[in-house]
């Protein structure tokens, strides 16, 4: 039972981060119908921005501000930095290709992903970076927390999971309850029609990239609070995030959240009960099963081909 609870907590931690990444994919795919391969690397850059700001504020062993403020500042900085990065990528690598054949932006995105990962390696090296949150007030984030049975859900996990969910709720409001969000949904439904209705498509797309990339930045920090980050995590993070988005139904916001959690649970339980080695195989099987039986994903709508 303890193992089960522990694995469930693991799954929620992992899944909420996957969900945040998946949201970025799904938002961009919604409005641009573009598989943004570089998204995983934006996530990676986010975790590094967080690391840099953390060092500027004195590091974890000797922070110059209270812990809560430290965490908030680090997360906000990563979100802002990633938002800028996302907009730059969109402006220079995708916008010129908006009317090109669909393979063009995909290849360009591959190029951006490769460029970002290697640029980061060039500048900051490939060694893993540890936020070392353990040093914050003598390990309080690890040692304090909620006890369920014999399992301690540490403060850090509570922070990670709850921040992820708060961000998702904020996103849901932005998309469903604001004018810009409405414009986004309209664009995603039919870009041409939306343009004819007087929606500024460029603005909507920039806004989408700001949202998606900021979420990736936040996910990067939440991820790196617990485990070391390296310049090469972008590939795996992107792969998992996109798989989550596809499973949940690409283009659907709730779907991305559900997909992320499904992936988190699948990985965690496989590692806990079956084998630590084969979790990729299980996730791949789930992906293939969805491709065969429900290609539109869990909550996506089936695509109607217009002739």
């Amino acid at each position: 039972m303890d193992t089960f609870i522990q694995l469930t907590v693991d799954a929620l931690t992992l899944g909420s981060i996957y969900a945040l990444i998946a949201l970025g994919y799904t938002l961009v795919y919604g409005v641009l119908k573009l598989l943004n391969f570089a998204h995983g690397d934006v996530f990676m850059v986010g975790s590094f921005i967080g690391f840099g700001v953390l060092q500027l504020l004195g590091g974890t062993s000797n922070p110059s501000v209270p812990i809560w403020l430290l965490l908030v500042l680090v997360t906000l900085a990563a979100m802002a930095g990633c938002a800028v990065l996302g907009v730059v990528i969109e402006r220079f690598a995708y916008r010129p290709l908006r009317d090109a054949p669909r393979i063009a932006p995909l290849i360009s995105a591959l190029g951006v992903s490769f460029f970002l990962a290697n640029s980061m390696q060039l500048l900051f090296g490939a060694e893993p970076r540890n936020y070392d949150t353990f040093s914050l007030s003598n390990g309080a984030l690890y040692l304090k927390g909620l006890d369920i049975g014999n399992v301690r859900v540490s403060l850090l996990r509570i922070i990670t999971i709850s921040s992820a969910f708060v961000l998702m709720i904020v996103l849901w409001f932005l998309v469903n309850r604001t004018r810009t969000g409405k414009a986004m949904r309209a664009t995603s439904f039919d870009r041409e029609a939306a343009a004819m209705m007087g929606i500024d498509i460029d603005r909507v797309i920039v806004f989408t990239f700001v949202l998606g990339s900021a979420l990736a930045g936040a996910a990067g920090v939440l991820f790196a609070l617990r485990v070391p980050t390296t310049v090469s995590i972008g590939f795996i993070a992107g792969l998992k995030g996109f798989t989550a988005a596809v499973i949940g139904g690409i283009g659907s916001i709730q779907g991305a959240m559900a997909g992320g959690l499904i992936l988190g649970f699948a990985e965690s339980y496989t590692q806990g009960y079956i084998s630590t080695k084969w979790s990729d195989l299980v996730v791949f099987s789930i992906l293939i099963a969805f491709m065969i039986f429900r290609p539109q994903g869990l909550l996506g709508r089936a695509e109607i081909r217009k002739v």
Binding site: P128, P228, T229
Partner: peptide
């Protein structure tokens, strides 16, 4: 004996085991 893929960064599941 446990075995972690070289892409692993989160060892939670291993610690649980």
């Amino acid at each position: 004996r446990l075995s972690a893929p070289n892409t692993t960064t989160d060892y939670s599941a291993y610690v649980t085991k």
